[in-house]
C-alpha cells in the first residue's frame, strides 16, 4: 500500500507517495535526496541519523515518515549557507578537529544544534552528557565536546555583546 504524505524539510514542502513502513531517515535520504543524514544502526543507539523534529533532536531511524506530517524537520543540509559558508557550530567542529571520517558528524551537529537552542547556558559537563547520546568511532569524543562548548561560549558572548550594545 502506498500512502500520500506531505513533509516539511528545511522549510520546503514535499508531497510523497510512499509505503508507510518507510522510516524518516530513508525518506530523507532516498526519496528527498538529502543524503547528509546518515544511517548507522537503525535501532536508535548510534545517533548518526539524528535530525530536528520541531526543533528537538530525534532519531530519524525510529520514526516513520508518516508520523511526522505537519512537523518541521531540519537536517544537516540546513546549517550552512546556500553558498557553502559554514555556520558557527560547523566552524567550531572544524577548528577543534571534532570530526575525522565525518560519518557521525551530521548527527552530532543536529544533536548539538537542537540542544544548544534549548539550553544556551549548558555547561561542558552537560554537553558531554548530551554528546553521549551518539556514537563516534574516530575522535574519542573530546574534541566534539570542546567544539560544542566553544560554540556555546561564542554564542553567549555574541548575545551579551548584542545586549551591551543595545543598552549602551
Amino acid at each position: 500500500m502506498i500512502q500520500l504524505i506531505e513533509l516539511t524539510v528545511n522549510g520546503e514542502r514535499h508531497d510523497l507517495a510512499i509505503e508507510p513502513r518507510r522510516t524518516l531517515v530513508d525518506v530523507l535520504r532516498h526519496d528527498l535526496g538529502l543524503t547528509g543524514t546518515h544511517v548507522g544502526c537503525e535501532h536508535g543507539i548510534c545517533g548518526a541519523c539524528t535530525v530536528l523534529v520541531d526543533g528537538a533532536p530525534a532519531r530519524a531511524c525510529l520514526l516513520f515518515a508518516a508520523q511526522v506530517e505537519g512537523a518541521e524537520i531540519r537536517t544537516v543540509e540546513s546549517l550552512a549557507e546556500p553558498d557553502g559558508t559554514l555556520n558557527d557550530l560547523q566552524r567550531c567542529f572544524s577548528e577543534h578537529h571534532g570530526l575525522q571520517c565525518g560519518f557521525c558528524t551530521p548527527g552530532m551537529l543536529m544533536l548539538a544544534e537542537g540542544y544548544l537552542a534549548e539550553e544556551p547556558e549548558a555547561t561542558k559537563e552537560e554537553i558531554r552528557e548530551v554528546v553521549a547520546s551518539n556514537l563516534c568511532r574516530c575522535t574519542g569524543y573530546q574534541t566534539i565536546v570542546e567544539a560544542i562548548d566553544d560554540c556555546a561560549s561564542r554564542r553567549r558572548a555574541a548575545f551579551q555583546d548584542q545586549l551591551d550594545r543595545s543598552t549602551a
Binding site: 545517533g47 528537538a56 533532536p57 530525534a58 532519531r59 520514526l63 544533536l111 553521549a132
Partner: peptide, 8 residues
C-alpha cells in the same frame, strides 16, 4: 536513554 530518545 538519551536526549533524542527522551524528546520522542
Amino acid at each position: 536513554g538519551h536526549l533524542p530518545i527522551r524528546t520522542r
